[in-house]
Amino acid sequence: MAKQFDALSDALIRFIDAQHMFFVGSAAPEGRVNISPKGMDSLRVLSLNRIVWRNLTGSGNETAGHLAQINRMTLMWCGFETKPMILRCYGSAKTLHPRDTEFDALNALFPASPGARQIYDVAVDLVQTSCGYAVPFMEHKGERDVLSKWADDRGAEGISDYWETRNQTTIDGAPTHILAQGSD
């Protein structure tokens, strides 16, 4: 039942736009695989083969550490509310930190947040759809505001301290490069 494509279509982009969350998968050559749910208006489809998503400060920083070792990423959406479908976009991604020149322009695509940690600029090389018949119906009741309040309460200095103490390595000990190269 799976179908594969070289690029997104307008219909698949509409499906992505209708979803309230997506999942990110990454893995280093060795160690643990990371799968992380994302939401909070943090993704934009820029073209049929380009997606950007903004990563907010959180407890782990696995994706950055994995991409520094091997550049591969999978994004996945599930149709929880209407159409039973699973959509995966496979590709590579460029990690952009707030210190990078391209960060500000892409960050401007999203609502302001002091917790903006990275933006991933994903080059999609394979798109796959599958049935999603086993995905349950789930009702979206709204976004949680806990992470936004947490970041607002800390401010820029508190977020920077958090990066230094909690976001510099993956759970397997690989560097995430959250701080400037000389500080890692």
Score class of each variant (00 low, 15 high):
L75E: 02
W77N: 08
C78K: 10
C78T: 10
G79F: 10
G79W: 08
G79S: 11
G79T: 12
G79K: 10
F80Q: 11
F80W: 15
T82D: 15
T82F: 10
K83Y: 13
K83M: 13
K83T: 15
P84K: 05
P84V: 06
M85Y: 03
M85Q: 12
M85I: 07
I86H: 03
L87Q: 06
R88I: 01
C89V: 07
G91N: 04
G91M: 06
G91F: 11
S92I: 04
A93D: 02
K94G: 00
K94I: 10
K94R: 15
T95N: 03
T95S: 14
L96K: 04
H97T: 11
D100Y: 02
T101V: 12
F103N: 01
D104K: 12
A105Y: 00
A105C: 00
A108Q: 07
A108C: 02
L109C: 04
F110I: 04
P111N: 05
P111E: 08
P111V: 01
A112Q: 12
A112M: 04
A112D: 13
S113G: 00
S113R: 02
S113Y: 00
P114F: 06
A116C: 04
A116E: 02
Q118R: 14
I119V: 09
Y120T: 00
D121A: 04
V122Q: 00
V122T: 02
V122A: 08
A123L: 09
A123W: 09
V124Y: 06
D125N: 15
D125G: 01
D125W: 09
V127G: 07
V127Y: 07
Q128Y: 02
T129A: 05
T129C: 10
S130N: 13
S130G: 11
S130I: 05
C131P: 05
C131R: 07
C131L: 10
C131I: 08
G132S: 06
G132I: 08
Y133D: 12
Y133Q: 14
A134P: 00
A134W: 09
V135S: 11
V135T: 15
P136W: 10
P136C: 10
F137T: 15
M138Q: 15
M138V: 14
H140L: 12
K141Y: 11
K141C: 10
G142S: 07
G142V: 09
G142Y: 03
E143R: 12
E143Q: 13
E143K: 13
E143D: 15
R144E: 07
D145T: 14
D145A: 11
D145F: 12
L147I: 09
L147H: 08
S148R: 15
S148F: 07
S148G: 10
A151Q: 08
A151C: 12
D152M: 07
D153F: 02
D153Y: 03
R154N: 02
R154E: 01
A156F: 07
E157W: 04
E157M: 04
G158P: 02
G158I: 04
G158M: 02
S160Y: 15
D161V: 05
D161I: 05
Y162T: 11
Y162M: 11
